[in-house]
Simulated scan of single mutants.
Amino acid sequence: MDGTHTHKIKVGIFADGLGRKGKGTAIVLQRIVEHLYQMPNFNIRLIYLAGQCNHELCRRAPSVEVRLFQFPQFSGFFSYAYFFLFSKERFDIVHFPRPALHPLFWLIKALGRTQKIVVAFHGAPESRDIPIFKTWQTRFNRRFIAVFGKYFIDAGIVLSESARDPVARYYHLHNHKIVVINTGVDVQFSNIQHHILNDADKQYLQARYNIPYPYILSVGRLDPHKNIHRLIEGYAKARNKHGISHTLVIVGGKHEPTYTQRVERTIDDLGMRNSVCFTSFVEDKDLPLVYRGADAFLFVSLSEGFGMPLIEAMASGCPVLASNVSAMPEIAGGAAYLVNPYDTDEIAEGIQQILRDGTLREELIKKGILRAKNFSWERCAEETKGLYLKLYTNKDL
């Protein structure tokens, strides 16, 4: 858009998930909003249920509060139904930051209240071989988009080239509607003077989160596709076969109940109860310290749309071991030690190589720091802005 245009493109961004702690989707939404709402030529409006957003961006950025109807159950559902049916708000573009679409979302376009709809698909979809945590709501949303919602979606955002085709196939979207926009990495991870914790930092982590030292690290909730049970099996082999003494610290909540029970059984069966440490949640300000304190970062997920912890670890100067499947090789870009996530012997060998081969460690650290510099929120916001402009001017994506 050149300077002769006076109309600001009005974009409504659904922001109910803006304040969700420990969620990659929330972090992406926060950073995008922080950059976009201050851009000239754009009139950004956050859309959320009245009184339900406690994030400071909801106070700073212009907003549209959806009238909240209080019911014993499903208050949000009925409130958004009313909004989609009767709201007088008009937008040029509306942006859903994740594929959790209300069954009446399409009315906002059918009734002429927006010209274009954008939906972000952050994770890689499930497949026959890779289980993804799901509830009846997520099952409904996925099938709803694939069968009906696809007719009203003008652009889908994925976070890697690896996710483009799986998302297009799974949701029955035309491939030309899929746009790849990588996420960024917060400067707090890369804005550090050194990559070794001092004694005060170690004492703080132990007191605040019960994290021992030395340790190796994994970040991710206990969901089936995160493959934590095989990570623990590989780690146990590294201890028993190679004499590795590090504690395995896992940052992320015990989430999907059945899979959490499987992980717990694996720990007990292998006698690793005193060697595996779970920390359910780490404050944002402390996460760089946790990465910096680890002697290796392990990410053996079976399926990811991007894998933000990979880049956070690299930016923090922590050597990375990652899966050789899904988006991980693409995002790692040659800066990680790649393993077959189904092969626990390979995982064990990778752990001991990173911990004991000093030359390899230094190479991975240097490559990781350089690789992380390719990902920034400024670039992410600029590419999102470019997508909005193409949609507004009806140009090919």
Rank of each mutant, 00 (worst) to 15 (best):
G271F: 09
M272F: 12
M272T: 08
R273N: 15
N274H: 15
N274K: 15
N274W: 11
S275E: 14
S275F: 15
S275M: 13
V276M: 03
V276F: 04
V276W: 00
C277Q: 02
C277I: 02
C277D: 00
C277S: 03
F278G: 00
F278E: 00
F278D: 00
F278K: 03
S280D: 12
S280H: 14
S280E: 14
F281S: 08
F281Q: 11
V282W: 02
V282S: 06
V282T: 06
E283S: 15
E283R: 15
E283C: 04
D284V: 06
D284N: 14
K285G: 07
K285I: 14
D286S: 12
L287C: 05
L287A: 04
P288R: 08
P288V: 09
P288D: 01
P288Q: 08
V290H: 00
V290N: 00
V290S: 02
Y291F: 15
Y291M: 10
G293F: 05
A294I: 07
A294C: 11
A296T: 04
A296G: 07
A296L: 04
A296N: 03
F297E: 01
F297A: 00
F297I: 10
L298N: 01
L298W: 06
F299I: 13
V300G: 01
V300K: 09
S301H: 06
S301W: 09
L302M: 14
L302N: 05
L302C: 05
S303N: 10
S303C: 04
S303F: 03
S303M: 08
S303P: 03
S303A: 14
E304Y: 09
G305H: 02
G305E: 02
F306A: 01
G307Q: 06
G307P: 10
M308N: 13
M308D: 01
P309K: 05
P309D: 04
P309E: 01
P309S: 11
P309R: 04
L310W: 07
I311V: 15
E312T: 13
E312Q: 14
E312M: 08
E312L: 10
A313M: 11
A313I: 07
M314R: 11
M314K: 04
M314E: 08
A315Q: 05
A315S: 12
S316T: 04
G317L: 10
G317P: 02
C318W: 05
C318K: 05
C318S: 09
L321M: 15
L321Y: 04
A322F: 08
A322C: 10
S323G: 03
S323F: 02
S323R: 06
S323T: 09
N324V: 09
N324A: 13
V325S: 06
V325L: 12
V325C: 13
S326L: 10
S326H: 07
S326D: 02
S326E: 01
A327C: 05
A327K: 01
M328Y: 03
M328F: 10
P329I: 13
P329T: 13
P329W: 07
E330T: 12
I331Y: 11
I331R: 07
I331E: 01
I331P: 01
I331F: 08
A332H: 02
A332E: 00
A332K: 04
G333H: 10
A335K: 06
A335V: 10
A335R: 06
A336F: 09
A336L: 11
A336E: 01
Y337N: 10
Y337L: 14
Y337Q: 11
Y337F: 15
Y337M: 15
Y337S: 13
L338T: 11
L338C: 10
L338N: 09
V339F: 13
V339G: 01
V339D: 00
V339T: 12
